[in-house]
Design a protein around this nucleic acid. Structure first.
Lengths: 102, 102
DNA sequence: GGCTTTGGTTAGTGGCAACTTACCGTTCGT
DNA sequence: ACGAACGGTAAGTTGCCACTAACCAAAGCC
């Protein structure tokens, strides 16, 4: 998931889909400065983690952003810093106990 | 930002800081299976994008998760799919107009 | 004042992943 | 039915980045 978002080209692809809405692979390749096969490979990665979905329309494959992937990221984010705040509170408690022992 | 989160080791470091609270570089190196210099380098990257902050305590450098970085990610996320939904609505509108022309 | 601990930096290496070129299957148009 | 458009896959190359080893600076400790 975050591995998929780690690549700049993939973010450009997502950004393009975000701005322009759903579109085909070739159209995408026309707007992103890499070859069409590269786009295909990136779309595969993005699809594997649920950030993108596609729908066959004749020979064309229309790709669109898939919400579930972004929701997953949001959940991870929420949980992450909820827990971080708890852990931080624990840390404060521990260091105060240490200070009491001196 | 997302580049920083793209690396698995850096995510382990963040995860360790999340679970254990703030701690020193050496302590961190003891819990993550890479060398101490590697930890330093990763912390530098994480610090550069505001995901982590450090405070000098004698010779020790105590690192902690910094909330601002995570907030930034959340903002990006919110904006991203707000805009994606708009773009999608536009797309629907366009395709319906095309259908009308037939 | 030495010795140790702590940690940031540099130089060098290895591995992975992003990219291109070439190829092939599939579907549309005529 | 044949040529063209679309797109996924394979093979091969290159460049970048994560990692280690070695070095250095600063601050504690006895």
């Amino acid at each position: 998931m975050l591995d998929a978002l780690g690549d700049p080209t993939r973010r450009v692809i997502l950004e393009t889909l975000r701005r322009g809405g759903p579109c085909s692979v070739s159209t995408l390749a026309g707007q992103v400065p890499v070859s069409r096969p590269a786009i295909s490979q990136h779309l595969k990665v993005l699809g594997a983690v649920g950030l993108v979905r596609h729908e066959s329309r004749g020979t064309r494959n229309i790709y669109r952003i898939h919400r579930a992937g972004l929701d997953e990221l949001r959940d991870w984010l929420d949980q992450f810093w909820g827990d971080a705040l708890e852990a931080y509170a624990d840390h404060i408690r521990r260091t105060e106990e240490e200070r009491d022992e001196h």
